[in-house]
Write a protein that binds this DNA or RNA. Structure first.
Lengths: 333, 333
DNA sequence: TATTCCCGTGAAAGCGCTTTCTCTTAATAT
DNA sequence: ATATTAAGAGAAAGCGCTTTCACGGGAATA
């Protein structure tokens, strides 16, 4: 790979001049600028970004730690982040923490040694305290999809309680009174918040909360299946289920299909997140829309803003939205 | 951020010694090693990887250009690649080309300026010639999910023809004789190959190829819907459809559902790729499994092998596999 | 014509590492 | 005891850029 020296030699100017044309510095004569451009072109010159970063102490890249690089949740998020960063000449370095504390730390360490200009954290395993300490040391860390009071202005998160409320309220409005809830793991704040929303809606409607109707499940894969099975094995009646996420709702779909039943017939189900595949399901799933792309966009813009020294960034709370499709209906009888 | 100098000062040794303990060089006395470690710890030292890269001319990172960071196809692939690289102390820098030639070039340029140790290309827009030229200049480029004869030993690809054959053969074995095919865009080699597989199976069974039964669609989103609609509007009979990918198959699901029909009742449908959500569909989709994760793993290992100078890497062709689920059944009547 | 100013330019230092080369000291062989 | 070797450590150069500073020469001002 050609270096700046080769370019400057070929163009018959100093390295400083080459550097100036690269960086759009206007204190270069037209004639020299052209010579340099020609030389660059001829050599297929690509500046070495390591050298640049070392000299400027800026890497023009931001790092992100997500749970996994695959999956319907993080993908769209990274996608929207990358889009806006790219537009501003920044780049995204993606690493995954696999929801494991050690791996999350490891990823952060890596990004630090990469001297990224900012870090976006979408982590589960790491505790609040560690997060707080980190953010205090480094003003360019942002926390996505999680709310830590002490870090209020570095958090971009969803109003999960509202979502839980909307889902439950929807069923209540349809006429349901016996409504079950399959939550995500309650160690996660968002799961607790969603559950709280469920309780709020119940409360508002004067329906008593019944612990028998609540079961805790996992967000992933067949975690939904198992939890749904557990609910159905309990000897309680219900005509609607609000789920901690779409996967869990799919678990309910599955259980129902075992009896050749379909959601919305005897039992209505409401998901949460509106993953892109929810609309491929039959019946199409009623769910709570999580504006993931928007979260990504906002995060990226926040990073950008923060970098340009406008140190006025503030945390953002996003609003979920009820999407009514076909898996919910008035109760029969 | 602390520098090596601060560490060496604090430890009372030279920078060279600090560097040595960092890199596991054994020519350091135990006592000094401990001093250095302690100093590093105390300062929370993280080596600046730019400086390291500049000095060693190695970045310990590999770049990948995919179509999009989101979506069910690239996600799992990147995931598996990252996993194996991570294990070897390498890291993944992910960029997306959005299936647009300029953006693909741009991404590659970026990765080059980042001096990644290797580049993984999963590109659609770029032509073979450009690819070939690139690979000739840079021995550390690999091409995924695409076969270019001139680049045979740098390609990791699927035997698409076999997949098309298997899908079609499956329907034939079930007793179908009137089998339609909705292909992906035929500008793509893989779509052509899959179609060829379809023809081979037909041919083998002595069924005549009928152009009326073949329609070209798009891989994305509702591309499947439109193509399916077109097929159904033609005045031809068929009892089975093999699709260019799962999305297209979903399009068929949709069309059928408009008439309150379900796949496998009157018309069997076979997908291609086995995206993770295919099993969330009802009826569960019969499809061709594309070993995406495996492709990622192999690619990553190939990169690693190539970097350790074992210049014996060879291209790999992966085999697809028929997954029979519920969307295919013997023809009625 | 003499003085000031500004613009374009190059020399050189510095960014934070690695690595070669040299030197010192201790261990081993004679 | 001396001669040889090996091990551990530091000085310094170099990686490819950016940026400060100083300089020279024409344009502008007096």
């Amino acid at each position: 790979m050609a270096t700046i020296k080769e370019v400057s030699d070929l163009a018959g100017v100093s390295q400083a001049t080459v550097s100036r044309v690269m960086n759009g510095n206007n204190k270069v004569s037209e004639i020299n600028r052209e010579r340099v451009m020609a030389a660059m072109d001829k050599l297929g010159y690509q500046p070495n970004s390591f050298a640049q970063a070392l000299a400027t102490n800026r890497s023009y890249s931001v790092g992100i730690v997500v749970g996994t690089l695959s999956g319907p949740f993080y993908g769209p998020m990274m996608h929207s982040i990358e889009s806006v960063l790219r537009n501003e000449g920044q780049h995204l370095i993606a690493t995954s923490g696999h929801d494991d504390l050690e791996q999350e730390r490891d990823a952060i360490r890596f990004l630090n040694s990469r001297r990224v200009d900012a870090i976006l954290l979408v982590v589960q395993a790491m505790g609040d305290d560690e997060l707080i300490e980190m953010c205090q040391r480094n003003p360019n860390i942002f926390v996505l999809n999680r709310y830590v009071p002490e870090l209020a202005n570095r958090c971009i998160y969803l109003n999960n309680e509202l979502g839980g409320y909307l889902a439950t309220k929807h069923l209540i409005d349809l006429g349901h009174t016996k409504i079950a809830s399959i939550t995500g793991p309650l160690v996660h704040l968002d799961a607790r918040e969603r559950l709280q929303g469920y309780r709020n809606a119940l409360n508002e409607a004067g329906i008593e909360y019944d612990a028998q109707l609540v079961v805790e499940g996992l967000y992933q894969e067949d975690g939904g299946n198992k939890a749904a099975a557990k609910l159905f094995q309990r000897d309680v009646e219900f005509t609607g289920v609000v789920c901690g996420n779409d996967n869990i709702a799919i678990g309910v779909y599955d259980i129902l299909s075992l009896d050749n039943e379909s959601p919305a017939e005897r039992i209505s189900v409401v998901g949460y997140d509106d993953m892109f595949y929810s609309r491929y399901l039959r019946p199409k799933m009623t769910t709570i829309r999580f504006p993931i792309e928007e979260m990504g966009t906002i995060a990226a813009n926040m990073v950008l803003q923060n970098l340009s020294n406008v140190d006025l960034v503030k945390g953002v709370q996003l609003e979920p939205q009820l999407i009514v499709r076909e898996s919910s209906a008035p109760p029969v009888g």
